[in-house]
Structure formats: C-alpha cells, structure tokens
C-alpha cells in the first residue's frame, strides 16, 4: 500500500497494544507503527510511559503486560479477569510481525479446523479432523463474541496423559483485533488456562501479534512457555502470509464458509455491523 488509509471510527477508537512492557527499558526510546502511522514510546527515567505520534501525546495504558495506546478516543479496555488471579503465571510470550491483516490473524486464532494440518502432533493429529458442533453467541450487548463447547481432539491432551482426547475450548472476541481463548488446564482440570492474541494493526495488510498467557503452571520456565507459543505461531505465520487477499473479505460470498466456521462468520458479520473497513474488504453495498 503506497497510500496510507485512514481507519474507520470503530477501529480508530480502540486501545491497541504496541509493545510488551518487559521490553521497554528506561531512557531507551522506541518506535513502532499503528495504522501506518509512526508511533514513538519511551519510559522516562522517572518511570512514566509516554507515547507520541510525533505531533501529540497519545493515551497510555499498561495492561496485560503490554503498553496500549490509541489514535482515537477509546473506551475502557476489555476485561480478562484471570490475569489478576494471584496463583497464575502471566507470561508475555512474544510479539511477531505478520504480513497479513490483523483480522485474518484473529480469524486464524479462532479456528480449530487447521490444528491437525498446521499444528500437527501438537494441537491436533491426523486423522482426527472433525470440528464438532459448538455454540457461538453475542454477549455484553453485542460488544463481544463468545464461542463455547468447542471440542477438538488433541494428541497429548495434557502433560500427564499418554493418549489423545477431546479438549474443550472457549473463545472470546471482545475487540476487533484481540481474542482470548481458554482451555482446560493440565494442572487443574477445573480451571482454564487463558491464551490471548492481541493484534496491533501496523498497516492494513500487516500486524504484530502480541501473545500473552495467563496459565496454571508451576513446572515450566517462562522461556519454555514462550518458545512453545512462538513455535505454534511460527506454524501459523506462513499460512497467514499465503492468504489472498491479505485483507479480510466481509462479503459472505467472497469465500466458502462451512459449519465449523460459525465463529468467524459471526466475527465477519460483527465487523460489518460496526462498519469496519480498515484491514478488511467490505461487502459491496
């Protein structure tokens, strides 16, 4: 894209993650992009975070181990209550740039059908390919999509099991470029691990994915948890970068959905309903 496209109001007026807090060192200014716009940020020696687009100071929020800002007027950031539970490990697993729109990235995050093909032997295994029926609905007055009772066969269901079994997932989409998934914790079957993908739309056809985990794990090191998550994301990246077009098509007839894609169908409708044009190809009126 040679010309810089202006974001639509819904996209503009959101908080966006621009860095992992642990990577921001006092007195070392850094720059990144949001909507194609250059953004600089710095933690001054007094410890305060400052974000600027070069002409004005931008709002600052420190949340879920990330620095968040906005080029518009954002409401409150969505809640991930698990992050505050004292016995959890909160890990910023890393930030990865991807040459595709952030919405394509979110849609991939919501998808179970690719597990046996893209995450073979980890999140899925052939021939167990079926995506069973699940529920998806809108909650919080249409501000969030939630998919529940999502079951998918996983070859090593937990660190203690030797055989495969169905694992249950819950997916939340509380933000146009952020999603949180929950799956049963290997450490405590009654509780759920939370894994989040926070998308920073650096451009219409590029984003950085910030991965944040809030899990029950007193065995593995932070590094190991990060490597694992980066390994998974590294498998998704080449697939995402071979999607055409790079922006997410919102015309229902642009691609061929199947029942397994119920969540993404709702996600696309939700984006359409909010008039999202940035990073998408809106349906012709």
């Amino acid at each position: 894209m040679n010309t810089m496209t202006q974001p639509d109001p819904f996209m503009l007026n959101q908080w966006y993650p621009i860095a992992s807090l642990q990577e921001i060192l006092p007195g070392q200014p850094r720059a990144t992009k949001l909507f194609g716009q250059r953004i600089s940020y710095e933690r001054n020696v007094a410890g305060a975070l400052q974000v600027s687009d070069g002409s004005r100071a931008l709002p600052v929020l420190e949340q879920y181990g990330c620095l968040w800002t906005s080029l518009g007027e954002p409401d409150e950031l969505f809640d991930v209550p698990e992050y505050a539970e004292p016995d959890r490990r909160n890990v910023n697993a890393g930030s990865v740039g991807v040459q595709v729109s952030a919405q394509r990235g979110i849609e991939n995050f919501l998808d179970m059908g690719h597990f046996p093909y893209v995450h073979t032997g980890i999140l899925g295994a052939l021939p167990h390919t079926e995506v069973k029926e699940y529920n998806v609905e809108m909650i919080r007055d249409g501000r969030e999509i939630i998919a529940t009772e999502c079951l998918f066969y996983q070859p090593m269901a937990s660190t203690v099991s030797t055989s495969g079994a169905d694992v249950e997932y819950i997916y939340r989409v509380p933000h146009p470029t952020c999603s949180v998934l929950y799956k049963s914790s290997p450490m405590d079957e009654k509780r759920l691990d939370a894994i989040a993908l926070f998308g920073q739309p650096t451009g219409e056809e590029t984003f950085r994915g910030h991965m944040v985990l809030s899990i029950l794990d007193d065995v593995n090191t932070d590094d190991f948890i990060s490597y694992f998550q980066l390994h998974i994301f590294g498998q998704d990246k080449p697939i995402l970068e071979n999607q055409m077009p790079k922006r997410l098509p919102l015309d229902p007839r642009a691609e061929t959905p199947i029942r397994a894609d119920k969540t993404s169908i709702m996600y696309r409708r939700w984006l359409t309903g909010h008039g999202v044009t940035y990073g998408t190809i809106p349906a012709a009126a």
């Binding site: 690719h114 093909y117 697939i239």
Partner: peptide
C-alpha cells in the same frame, strides 16, 4: 495446507472437507 480440503484432478471439484 490450511484445512486439508481436497480438489480433484481435472474437474477441480472439492472432494473432501476434513472438518466435516
């Protein structure tokens, strides 16, 4: 590569959708 959809030689028809 993504979801294992299969398309047949010649007629290009989809022959299998592994998710269903």
């Amino acid at each position: 590569q993504y979801h294992g959809w299969r398309y047949a030689n010649r007629n290009a028809g989809c022959t299998y959708i592994p998710a269903h």
